[in-house]
């Protein structure tokens, strides 16, 4: 039986972008406010899962040919290397530093901590793991992690 899911698919096309934008907002809110890499990563993967639900798994893997396991590995590497940078600067592992930027367009002083690179790694790792688990269960082949 063919399921009529036109509404879900149409909504998904729009909503995915809203979710992704929200994820980016959450990601950058992370330093002093609720948010950060973990939550950002989860929201990104929720957008991907919505796409999986609305379309089928073949379509999504065709449009986004990503190996999620590689993303996980890369994410962990990025996070670890930001930690390892402390060996170069002779500060304790995982120390953070701040950078002050002047953004010309929005006319605002913004403040970026080195934690953000670490958070990018965390987000990648979270998206990678979540998607690996979901895809491997839903693919019906069921190869573990």
């Amino acid at each position: 039986m063919k399921i009529n899911d036109v509404i879900l698919q149409t909504v998904t096309k729009i909503v995915t972008f809203i979710i992704l934008t929200f994820a980016i907002y959450l990601f950058f809110a992370g330093h002093h406010n609720p948010g950060g890499g973990f939550i950002g990563g989860l929201v990104i993967s929720s957008a991907l899962i919505l796409m999986l639900l609305a379309f089928d798994i073949e379509t999504v893997t065709q449009t986004l040919p990503i190996n999620y396991k590689v993303i996980t590995g890369l994410g962990v590497l990025v996070s670890l290397f930001t930690g390892m940078a402390s060996f170069v600067f002779h500060v304790p592992f995982l120390s953070q530093a701040h950078l002050h930027f002047y953004m010309p367009i929005v006319n605002e002083e913004i403040n970026i901590a080195t934690t953000i690179i670490f958070e990018i790694g965390v987000a990648m790792a979270v998206v990678g793991t979540t998607m690996t688990v979901i895809v491997s269960i839903s693919r019906n082949k069921g190869d573990e992690e």
């Binding site: 688990v133 069921g142 992690e145």
Partner: peptide
């Protein structure tokens, strides 16, 4: 708790895959 939730999430996910297998 945040840390523990993440760990819980991981183990539960793995357990589900194991049970499915």
């Amino acid at each position: 708790i945040l840390t523990a939730i993440v760990i819980n999430f991981g183990t539960t996910a793995f357990f589900l895959v194991l049970a499915y297998r």
